[in-house]
Design a protein around this nucleic acid. Structure first.
Lengths: 137, 137
DNA sequence: GTTTCAAATGCAATAATGTTGCAAATGTAA
DNA sequence: TTACATTTGCAACATTATTGCATTTGAAAC
């Protein structure tokens, strides 16, 4: 599924900013921060437009935020689009990247009486494979 | 352990702001946001002092941030102080409160080769017991 | 291909959030 | 009580996010 199809399926107009955000995240394969996304878009859009586009894309459940540690915000495509199942995320404290760990599915544990879950997030922090290698090099 | 003892054990000076932050979180029993903490402290401290106190308390591993959803930041006492084990947190999408779910311990799952974990966070989102009751009332 | 109109954009103004430098005040150990 | 490093509060500044509004643009109907 390409960005335009995604937008069309969600009844959103096809605009440069929205299209750009989706395709940059798609190409990366991993969650990106707002700045990482902007850096990868050649033509720059207004800051306001970015915020509004993110908001729209989130409201339409196309992307969602992952917030880790220092208020670092990363955006990822929704599982319905990537066709991944719910999975854990790994945050590297060294290079600050976030990776999807598809090998680790997320199960919501049984909750105390009266609580009802809609979503579960698992964030594992530590050192990623690349940084580990660099340190030992 | 009272706030002063905690500060002393971590070799920090006993100041009003630090003491206040710790005791408010202790009394609440659940993570609180910066504003929630300030609201509960009668005498108000400068914004800057708050930030710096939070920073100091985090650096000394007395409190830590829990970030959920909309960049909402909540502060909780460290497990070494509360003597709780690592546990999941529940975020109520209705009343925006965060609760410690001590009945749900957190286990770090086996990671792919090359990854090394230092910490795992589990945030479950949904409706808390109180809000569920109110909706059905 | 044109027309039409709601929706989206970009700009400016404003608000909210976080940081830094520095003089004055405060905590603690001698 | 003294001495001194640490912390505080203020002001200035930097960064991040939001709102109003005139202009532009996408896409559906003709």
């Amino acid at each position: 599924m390409n960005p335009n199809e995604v937008l069309h399926e969600h009844n959103l107009k096809r605009t440069g900013c929205r299209e750009g955000i989706i395709s940059v995240i798609m190409e990366s394969g991993n969650p990106l921060s707002e700045n990482e996304i902007r850096d990868r878009l050649s033509g720059t859009f207004d800051r306001t437009t970015f915020y509004r586009s993110f908001k729209t894309l989130q409201e339409s459940k196309i992307i969602h935020k992952i917030v880790v540690d220092n208020q670092l915000v990363k955006y990822a495509l929704d599982n319905t689009i990537t066709q991944k199942q719910e999975h854990a995320h790994f945050y590297c404290e060294e290079c600050q990247s976030v990776r999807c760990l598809e090998s680790i599915p997320v199960k919501t544990p049984p909750l105390p009486d009266g609580f009802k879950a809609t979503e579960t997030e698992v964030i594992i922090k530590g050192l990623c494979d690349k940084c580990q290698k660099n340190i030992h090099a």
